[in-house]
Design a protein around this nucleic acid. Structure first.
Lengths: 197, 197
DNA sequence: GTCTATAGTAAGATAGAC
DNA sequence: GTCTATCTTACTATAGAC
């Protein structure tokens, strides 16, 4: 066995992220994280003195950076709204591997009344995502209130079709969702999104 | 301490279900399950020789029975479609405590490529739910293909707004979803659901 | 920065008394 | 049907060598 070499942060975070997305936070033991990254447990503690919780938090922060770069900034660019939204859709397709990989925002959120150690990060990510999407819709001439509802609904659809794709064992729901997302977000009719009144 | 009394199955399943929905499958240790149910670990093994996995499986079966009684059968009744759908919405509102409690179908599904021990049960539940909803929409005069897409989309929206409600720390997304679900499902216009072509 | 080695704790699971 | 007691394994975390 040769001399151990430093593991780059980018590949480290990628592998940690994959584990959390595959087996969840509680299911991700240090043994599994160690095997996946190639780092021994003690080395993981060197990188993350706070243990698994700190590792998950930093992975989440890393994911939020990705969200900012690939979703929020494109949505806030000065191009035509349909182009910005299309960029978001393509990024989401890649990020979730066409529906095969779960969302950290779902995986790392604790269901219980105590919202868990990552509640603030997760809430911030969802809020920023929805706000950026709504802003793009407003730029497209959509009423601000309706834009907010549509944006929130779109994020819920992405999350829900990920859940459904996993449960049904097929990526079709997620693919269908992404395929119709742009047209649906920019539709001019009140459609099925409008307030019932 | 008095003589131990038998714990009824109905309350046992309810308490086990609550734990799984609160802390997830991996997070639900036998110590937690024991504390929540009032049964010692050995007693849990007496009821569930297969351990935690069997307990979760039986809880899931119990949930599917609930789904059949409160969602599938009402959807398949011979009343007007809007009444049937309204019954489903009210049942969902109660089952998820207005968006405060997670869905076992999401919680117990393993994200990874190996779909986990409950994949078949979860897939069956989602499939039956979508099929029953689609059948009600067909009865309402909606084109079968569109009915299937709308039904799948509605289930995804329920799951997604549950995820979002948890992440945002408010039940509003789930409530908004339920409030507009009936009108949206039965809308006569192509709406935002139609195929892009 | 990574490793081996190890302590201490919590987990899943079983045996046998009542 | 529930309990106490125990076993074995797996996990988290730390110490110290290289």
């Amino acid at each position: 066995m040769g001399r151990p070499v430093k593991v780059e942060d980018s590949v480290l975070f990628k592998k940690l992220s994959d584990v959390f997305r595959e087996v969840g936070y509680e299911g991700a033991s240090l043994a599994i994280l160690s095997a996946a990254t190639g780092l021994k447990r003690a080395s993981l503690y060197h990188r993350f003195p706070g243990g698994k919780e700190q590792a998950a938090r930093e992975v989440l922060v890393c994911a939020e950076t990705w969200l900012t770069d690939h979703v929020l900034l494109p949505l806030a660019s000065d191009g035509p709204p349909e182009v910005r939204i299309r960029a978001m859709v393509q990024s989401l397709d890649a990020f979730y591997s066409g529906g095969r990989q779960a969302c950290l925002l779902n995986i790392l959120s604790s269901p219980g009344p105590d919202r868990g150690p990552f509640a603030a990060l997760i809430e911030h990510a969802f809020t920023a995502w929805i706000a950026a999407l709504a802003a793009a819709l407003v730029d497209a001439g959509i009423d601000p209130e309706r834009a907010g509802l549509r944006a929130e609904r779109a994020v819920a659809l992405v999350q829900g079709t990920l859940v459904l794709s996993r449960g049904l064992g097929t990526t079709r729901p997620f693919e269908t969702c992404l395929a119709s997302l742009e047209l649906e977000l920019l539709a001019s009719e009140p459609g099925e999104m409008g307030k019932p009144s």
